[in-house]
Design a protein around this nucleic acid. Structure first.
Lengths: 179, 179
DNA sequence: CCAACAATCTCGCTGAGCGAGAGAATAGTC
DNA sequence: GACTATTCTCTCGCTCAGCGAGATTGTTGG
């Protein structure tokens, strides 16, 4: 689904193409990576990943928000950081009422457990249950295996380039969100 | 999902990683980009793009679904294909009731217009208003400009590699959704 | 001890999206 | 031609995620 992103007549970003070489498709056969094509590819990829997540969530009786929360919780668990409802809500851009609802839901599903923080008893720690780990494994496991396998068809230099590219794009999007 | 750019969502359950060595500006030579790092980069990028979209939507009184619908409609408009409520709903995975609600909303916002299909009078054509184009431009315009500018720091060969990489990853995710 | 602040939760509400099904138009069959 | 099946959209009633406002409980600094 979806390929084009801008509502314009023809793939013109709102900016003069600063890019020189990549613009002449006729030269360099096979290496004609149009910037706009790449933009659309990026978007297409995120759409696919989004849909993948949404479908997984639906299959397991979760809402998209629940899945995002699960991801956040698993990340934090691996990093060894403590997650409280406040932090979780901030990460997902929910207000406190919505966050309480979310946490209730996850607890009811047996994915997490609430535990009062002994140090500051206003706080609540969200502890991930094994069941959540398994769910995360189900979700990512297969896909990650496939992704990594597909990466095997690129050599080290190419992967390094891809990495730099993705880092660069991520930074741009993150920066754009700041304003 | 590491809402905050800092918070490095790191790692997947049960997958080993060996970070450190992952630092390498110039490619070639042994140092391979860690596949897992790339997986996380991909995920991080989609998270950023998602948040970017959600924040834009909120700022304009739209719901995430509305924005997705808008993108789909603009894509179709550019491609010259006709969009009906049925097609739109299928693309966004909404049932017919939800789709009607969505279309009502978009119409109320002045972004689209309903028009009976003269050929098959059961169908309704969704026509994009100029206002929607402008909104799309607002949304993507700046970001696309920034992305393209950032791509200017890569040479043609690198962009070609990035393109192949993204195509490959997209194919994997799309395939995973099939099962 | 008493404000001021912080973290979470409760209450009431709005509205997106669902299931079921009602119309309305078309396509196929006798 | 009527008769049934199918397709497309919309209506109705409902559930529940998430919001705003504020209550509750815990902490901290004067």
């Amino acid at each position: 689904m979806g390929a084009q992103v801008d509502g314009r007549p023809d793939g013109e970003p709102g900016v003069p193409r600063a890019d020189s070489a990549a613009e002449r498709p006729e030269e360099r056969v096979g290496a004609a990576a149009e910037p706009m094509q790449l933009v659309h590819l990026l978007r297409g990829l995120t759409v696919e990943l989004d849909l993948f997540g949404a479908e997984f969530a639906g299959r397991h009786g979760l809402h998209p928000t629940d899945l995002r929360a699960l991801i956040h919780l698993l990340d934090a668990a691996r990093a060894g950081t403590v997650v409280t409802p406040g932090r979780l809500g901030a990460a997902l851009r929910l207000n406190s009422a919505g966050t309480t609802g979310l946490v209730d839901r996850l607890e009811r599903l047996g994915l997490i457990r609430r535990e009062r923080d002994p140090g500051d008893r206003r706080k609540v720690r969200l502890l991930v249950e094994d069941r959540a780990m398994e769910l995360g494994q189900d979700f990512f496991g297969g896909l990650i295996g496939d992704l990594v396998a597909a990466m095997g068809r690129f050599d080290a230099g190419e992967l390094a380039t891809a990495q730099r590219f993705l880092q660069s794009m991520t930074a741009v999007v993150a920066a754009a969100r700041e304003e």
